[in-house]
Design a binder for these strands. Structure first.
Length: 421
RNA sequence: AAGGGUUUCAUACAAA
């Protein structure tokens, strides 16, 4: 039983949950009785593979057929899975259910929930839960505090995050590398890269060793401030501290140069990374594509688009957004429409953003009528216009002097319960 | 033998 449980867990952790289920069949045939320990990894595996429907079905079956006793770990897996699938409301319901069944939530459960709520921008609920756990004498640990701090950072409340950091130290729960990295990253995103450097010094004083994520965050901070030389200095300092750079490091720097329209420096790094044994990934290609279009090197971009597919990097959502936008921005709206048709014909997943981009291109080139045609075509693709779609059309019609039509879109979006922002 | 936290890429609007 031990051996098989270990094997099931291994499969689930390596995204091969179906093999895990085959083992479960064998497990039953041998006459073993499964426990929560058997099912938790399977549930986790399903959630990780974005198969939350199946996970929930299994969970119901476990309860309905009494396949095993539920314990706090199993609840934890399901609650975390629900949060990661964006279903925090249901996760909280489940928290209440387990409480009613007198299975008391622990620090792991609360942290998972606080993390989920924070990621969903529901900071009020996250904080409420945090106080609730204090009342119930569930002790927060470094992960709980870090999740909270991360949420505050993501909602631009870096000052509040600093307070949380002081508070945790006062409770003798000390920030670790991850906590510091989150702070550093947040400061960098706010443009406060010098303050981020201060935090690096503080973490070193506290015997936490900066890792590659720390330095990558710092490099991004300098890039955002257009301080490419400082970014490169950090990059070089990593090597001297024998911290290996990774593909993130390269992608961050390449993006920095692309945003400054220094495509040649970006391409230099692009070639250097291959020499150093880092194969450019989809993100690298997407970034360079954007950089090439930015300086109107359209044919080079189209070549790179082919090249990436030749070397086995499959274009993704970002690739197509970059291609469509790049073509439009350079006056090739017609080609963008062709690409959109190609995606459609290939049966690839279309996305409302693709239409938003092309419609914007059409509006900017004064072809409101065609934009309108595309707009009407959206529902037939099983897609729904979003705020960006409406804003694009409204702006297009306003700038074309057709205020009445613009206003119609505003009324229309409200009727479709798409709220203006 | 099972559960929680960190870094990179895209579209509208946003001052001129």
């Amino acid at each position: 039983e031990y051996t098989m449980s270990i094997a099931i867990n291994s499969y689930c952790n390596s995204n091969q949950v179906d093999y895990g289920f085959s083992l479960l069949g064998w497990f039953f045939k041998l006459g073993h009785v499964p426990s929560a320990t058997t099912f938790s990894p399977l549930l986790k595996g399903l959630f990780r593979a974005n198969r939350s429907d199946e996970a929930l079905e299994l969970f119901k079956k476990i309860i309905g057929e009494g396949l095993c006793e539920l314990n706090v770990v199993l609840y934890g897996v399901v609650i975390d899975g629900l949060c990661k699938a964006g279903n925090t409301a249901r996760a909280i319901e489940l928290l209440r259910v387990m409480e009613r069944r007198s299975c008391m939530p622990d620090t792991y459960i609360c942290s998972a929930l606080i993390n989920g709520l924070s990621k969903g921008g529901m900071m009020d609920s996250a904080l409420k839960l945090f106080y609730e756990m204090l009342e119930k004498c569930i002790t927060p640990d470094v992960v709980t505090y870090t999740s909270l701090l991360h949420g505050l950072c993501n909602s631009s409340r870096v000052q509040d995050a600093r307070i949380v950091m002081k508070e945790m130290v006062a409770c003798k729960i000390y920030p670790d590398v991850i906590t510091f990295n989150i702070m550093i990253h947040a400061l960098c995103k706010e443009g406060l890269v010098d303050e981020a450097e201060d935090v690096v010094r503080i973490m070193i004083q506290n015997n936490e060793v900066p890792d590659r994520i720390t330095y990558n965050a710092l490099m991004e901070g300098y890039c955002l401030q257009s301080r490419m030389d400082d970014a490169m200095k950090v990059f070089e300092s990593m090597a001297s501290r024998s911290i290996a750079s990774d593909i993130y490091s390269y992608n961050i720097l390449i993006n920095g140069y692309c945003k400054k329209k220094k495509i040649d420096d970006a391409l230099l790094l692009f070639h250097e990374m291959s020499e150093k044994g880092f194969n450019p990934d989809v993100t690298t290609y997407n970034t360079i594509l954007q950089g090439l279009f930015c300086v109107s090197r359209c044919s080079a971009a189209l070549e790179l688009f082919d090249e990436m597919q030749v070397v086995g990097q499959k274009p993704n959502f970002f690739t197509y957004c970059n291609m469509l936008d790049g073509l439009c921005e350079n006056g090739h709206v017609q080609q963008a429409i062709l690409l959109l048709d190609t995606l459609d014909n290939k049966g690839l997943d279309l996305h409302i953003n693709y239409y938003n981009i092309v419609m914007d291109g059409l509006c900017k080139s004064g072809r409101l009528d065609t934009a309108q045609v595309l707009f009407k075509y959206i529902p037939s693709k099983g897609l729904q216009p979003d705020v960006v779609t409406y804003t694009t059309m409204i702006k297009g019609y306003c700038q074309g002097g057709l205020l009445k039509e613009a206003k119609n879109f505003l009324v229309n979006m409200k009727q479709k319960s798409c709220l203006p922002n």
